[in-house]
Amino acid sequence: MITNKTLFDTVNGEPVYKLSLTNANKMTISCLSYGANWYELLVPTAAGPQNLLLNFAKIADYQTTNQYLNMSIGRVAGRIGKGRFKIGEHDYQVAPNERGNTLHGGPHGFNQINWDSTVVANQIIFTHQITSTDDSFPGDLDVTLTYTLTDDNQVLLDYNVLSHGETVFNPTNHAYFNLNAGDENIKNLELLLKSSHRLALDTEKIPTGKTLVNTDTPYGFETKKTLGAAIEGLQNIPEKGIDDVYLIDRHADNDPVAVLSDPDSNISVSIFSQRNAIVLFTANGFGPDQPYLTKTGQPYVGVALEAQTAPNAIFDHDYGDFSLQDGERQHYQTKYQIRF
């Protein structure tokens, strides 16, 4: 395994590091300390290394045009309506950052942190203690985020936490994939997603508590189909694409919950998760203001597949429980199998 750690940029006078791992098959992953960002997923091709992720040249581009691109997301992925929730009998109000709601951990979430970082053996490791003073959530968290690269072309993302006080923890990674070698959008890519239902959302994208059927609709990917077919079937809705919480159907532990593939190159990314939801977002409103290194900013330039616990678990424990008590530890893992 080849490892590397170099200076990438600075933020608020602090160095931002780029950390890289290259396995025996010449596949490379790189991360940035700012946001514990998954910066590159490079696979070898006849034309040279191809990045399967969108990325920017400098930190200012993330801060000004797309603050969640490939970032680690926490404490809580998704939206908390009006920033209000309960743990047991205790009511909490956290800082909002989107129309009065709290999105992706609020204005001081994981994506805003310049993490302590190291690269050891086949792992990139990020650590940080986030306090209630930092982000307005109750309790303090000791967080370790680990990216592991294996020689069979797997990337493991592990989220480990120790809670000091009661709190909530529902992290994810907001990676945007585009498997095309050229400057194309993602409509030609094929997706298999093992989900027959999605959460009903209100006009502010807050779960209503109800579910909707995906099967035999443009939202359905239980049988592999192109993202373009789904997008074309949704041109009559305001978003003109997908930004939805998919509930994962029961499946064998060794089966992927989603497979994204390029039928031309046979490059694919299979996602394995034991959590009960994936947010699928087809970058519907992205535009030329976003200066990607290898792609033109445009609608459908990438696709995000964010494994997490269903966000309505915060008010309905039939969908899970991501609250933590004082002294409690929690661990989640998402695995990506890359084929090329």
Rank of each mutant, 00 (worst) to 15 (best):
T3Y: 05
N4L: 06
K5D: 07
T6V: 15
F8R: 00
F8S: 01
F8T: 03
V11F: 15
V16D: 01
Y17V: 14
L19P: 00
L19A: 11
L21V: 01
N23Q: 03
N25W: 05
M27K: 10
I29F: 07
C31W: 09
A36Y: 03
E40R: 04
L42W: 11
V43C: 08
P44W: 06
T45F: 07
N51C: 05
L52C: 09
L53P: 07
L54Q: 11
N55K: 06
F56Q: 03
A60Q: 12
Q63H: 06
N66S: 14
N66A: 13
I73Y: 08
V76Q: 09
G78I: 06
G78V: 01
I80K: 08
K82R: 14
G83R: 02
F85Y: 09
E89V: 10
D91A: 11
Y92F: 14
Y92A: 11
Q93G: 09
A95M: 12
E98C: 04
R99K: 09
G100D: 10
H108W: 14
G109I: 09
F110H: 15
N111P: 08
N114H: 07
N122C: 09
Q123S: 02
I124M: 06
T131S: 07
D135T: 01
D135E: 09
S136H: 07
P138V: 13
P138N: 08
G139Q: 00
D140E: 10
D142N: 13
V143Q: 00
V143D: 03
L145R: 03
T146N: 01
L149A: 00
Q154E: 15
V155A: 01
L156T: 06
L156Y: 14
L157E: 04
D158S: 14
D158C: 14
N160Q: 15
V161Y: 02
S163C: 10
H164Y: 12
N170W: 05
P171G: 02
P171L: 04
P171A: 05
P171V: 04
F177P: 03
N178P: 07
L179P: 07
D183W: 07
E184I: 02
I186S: 04
I186K: 05
K187T: 13
L189D: 00
L191S: 08
L193R: 04
L201Q: 10
P207H: 03
T208V: 07
G209F: 05
L212P: 15
L212W: 06
D216M: 11
K225G: 00
L227A: 04
L227F: 04
E239Q: 14
D244F: 06
I248F: 11
D249S: 02
V259M: 08
D262S: 07
D264I: 10
V269W: 03
Q274S: 13
R275I: 08
R275E: 12
N276G: 09
I278M: 12
F281A: 13
G285M: 14
G287F: 04
L293A: 11
L293C: 11
A304S: 12
L305A: 03
L305F: 04
Q308H: 10
A313H: 04
A313N: 14
I314L: 15
F315M: 00
L324Q: 01
L324Y: 02
Q325N: 14
Q325H: 12
D326Q: 07
R329H: 04
Y336D: 12
Y336P: 00
F340S: 13
